[in-house]
Write a protein that binds this DNA or RNA. Structure first.
Lengths: 359, 359
DNA sequence: AGCTTGAGTTAAATCGTTTTAGTGCAGACT
DNA sequence: AGTCTGCACTAAAACGATTTAACTCAAGCT
């Protein structure tokens, strides 16, 4: 009982378009891609045929022919990215969201690859042209598999030994910004509370901290903790430090979960922030912003970082597939200090919540 | 001057495998998919050939033949998901992360689709077999496009007029849990601070709040605010409410950004939480957890919700592609109250970081 | 003995696009 | 007049998998 003219709706193909426009399939393809010139009148007929038929290209077929999947994947190798809680997730997801936007601008979709035990599985299961790897570990299993398979890869974080493309986050500059700000705000005895793992960022913070302390004649105290259970760990460690009789007037605590713990410890110990103790952290996530008072942190410009990484990757995919010389690393935008209440800065710099007066 | 035996590395295909194993391509395919029986010995030769050649199937080719892209997309239609800040993003990303894991279990990858102006673009640019749509609006443009194109879609949130598949978040139950908890904790004059938009969740909270107030003989006060600039808006509105002479002993404030604002207002007004005022919110994100004291909230079990949605979607893709009868909605796991310091509960109920003890 | 059934296999068709190798044709240069 | 060049286009050949149709052989049933 259908009207008869309807040929039982099959998805229109390039051939249907070609027939309706009175040209060959190849010409339709050229009109669409612009790879070869097509007469204006012809193009006109083609586009109207496309509209009439509601033609949408079959991306799988295109992909097979071109060898492109039209996707890039973003990995975080942290085995426990999810278990590590919303904070770690926040960092990754902030990157992912911006990368997704940047990718779409180049007609590329972003695949979110969950942390899995077996990296090889992902590669056999998921089609993608390139990968963004967020803060890989020392000898990262994902990186190994990706390299072995020859997948173009951009690392966000430290550029390891044999670096693929990388957006190098400059942990030293971050450390310096925070250290100098604390010093400038008058802190003289501020421990560094940091993760004990061998991550590049931990190392950089340690190094800068020790160097700067030596240069300024300050006594360094490094409190190293496991990254797992960071919040409670930092709280307990700092409480112990204080009750051991150490007198502090600041804390440099890059990892935001630890910063939350530090703030709890300070409250418990009755040390007012910022009057008695100044606190500064690195990642300006929700934790930093919703502390009372809000924490001085860094604007890492993750949106720009993700954008940069995405563009590098897409460039590498398009251009240097064979050009092995496509090695290189880009400098991300410089981080910027966001001075907030936790170092005694009230103000217009950050969010609105300076109303943090302890009743 | 290569060693000669190396035939200039081309990616191995199913034909190469077949040749080496001494069978036909079809048999290799059957061995891989298990769709048809293959002799054990033959299978053995095939798998070893695969290993020897390092064969990885070309997913684009497979996809073209099978008509499957092997991906699902997750959308949030909120035009401003990113601009709305990390909090809103947190909700979406928590879902996305779990969905990605669930999808991978079925050998499906998750595409993160950024919010874009023109929904049609995404469909022409990105290949996916189905979509998860997070909390669509009343007449959502994405939903319209997806439906028009016949893409299987699962909605997380309210099931609209003509529902596709949906995981219905039960906003009423959420509202009841929170309302009843506040009442049980002794609050008698607690306003509802809520978004003014027509979102289903706002409506449900209003309705439950008014009904429950009437039933318990409490005087209702609804403070409606624009969702944009929620934090500051809630703070200012509540301060005004208080300085107007209203005496309150609780706040029901489902939206977590508003809850942050409410807490600021209470601190400014010198009203202690939980002694003078009890506060409860809905989404147990970082905001709720890192407030001082931590906020009583709901465990929405978003991981299970995402998992459920993903499985429903994959089921619909596999099974009911033509079966138009594949309509239906699933009930998500019931939300659970996480009582915390903001309603005077200290405790073991929630996450590990409940250590919010006021010194 | 005759018939069906199922396992195991293969050659060939197929999916929908892009690319290759030509084909005319017009104009510009020697 | 002859040769080139570039435009606009076409027919046919990939791309690499899965699926179909067909075939053989052995076993099970009546």
């Amino acid at each position: 009982m259908t009207t008869g003219t309807q040929p039982l709706r099959r998805r229109a193909t390039v051939k249907d378009v070609a027939r309706l426009a009175g040209v060959s399939a190849g010409t339709v393809s050229n009109a669409l891609s612009g790879k070869r010139p097509v007469d204006a009148a012809t193009r006109e007929r083609i586009t109207s045929a496309i509209a009439k038929l509601g033609y949408v290209p079959n991306l799988a077929a295109r992909g097979m022919r071109t060898g492109r999947a039209g996707t890039i994947a973003i990995f975080s190798s942290m085995p426990t990215a999810v278990a590590a809680g919303p904070s770690r997730l926040g960092f990754l997801m902030e990157l992912a969201a911006s990368a997704a936007i940047a990718a779409l601008e180049s007609n590329v979709a972003l695949l979110l690859v969950p942390p899995i035990e077996d990296p090889a599985t992902a590669l056999a299961t998921i089609a993608f042209d390139g990968a963004i790897l967020v803060e890989p570990e020392a000898r990262d299993p994902f990186l190994a598999v990706l390299a072995a398979r020859g997948v173009p890869t951009v690392v966000i974080g430290p550029a390891g030994d044999r670096p693929p493309l990388a957006v190098e986050l400059d942990y030293k500059v971050m450390a310096e910004l925070l250290f100098d700000h604390l010093a400038e705000r008058g802190a003289r005895r501020f421990p560094l509370v940091i993760g004990e793992s061998a991550r590049a960022s931990n190392a950089a913070f340690r190094e800068v901290y020790l160097t700067r302390c030596a240069a300024s004649g300050l006594e360094p105290t490094v409190i190293s903790l496991p990254e797992a259970d960071a919040e409670r760990g930092a709280r307990d460690a700092l409480l112990r430090h204080i009750s051991d009789g150490h007198d502090i007037d600041g804390v440099l605590v890059p990892i935001d979960a630890m910063a939350t713990g530090v703030m709890q410890a300070l409250r418990t110990a009755g040390l007012g922030v910022p009057d008695r103790v100044k606190v500064a952290t690195r990642y300006d996530g929700i934790r930093a912003r919703s502390e009372m008072p809000a924490l001085t942190a860094l604007d890492l410009k993750l949106d720009r970082v993700a954008q940069l990484a995405t563009r590098m990757l897409i460039g590498a995919i398009d251009g240097g597939a064979d050009t092995g010389a496509a090695q290189g690393s880009a400098e991300p935008p410089a981080p910027r200090l966001i001075a907030r209440g936790s170092t005694g800065m009230t103000g217009r710099t950050g969010t609105t919540d300076s109303a943090s007066r302890n009743a």
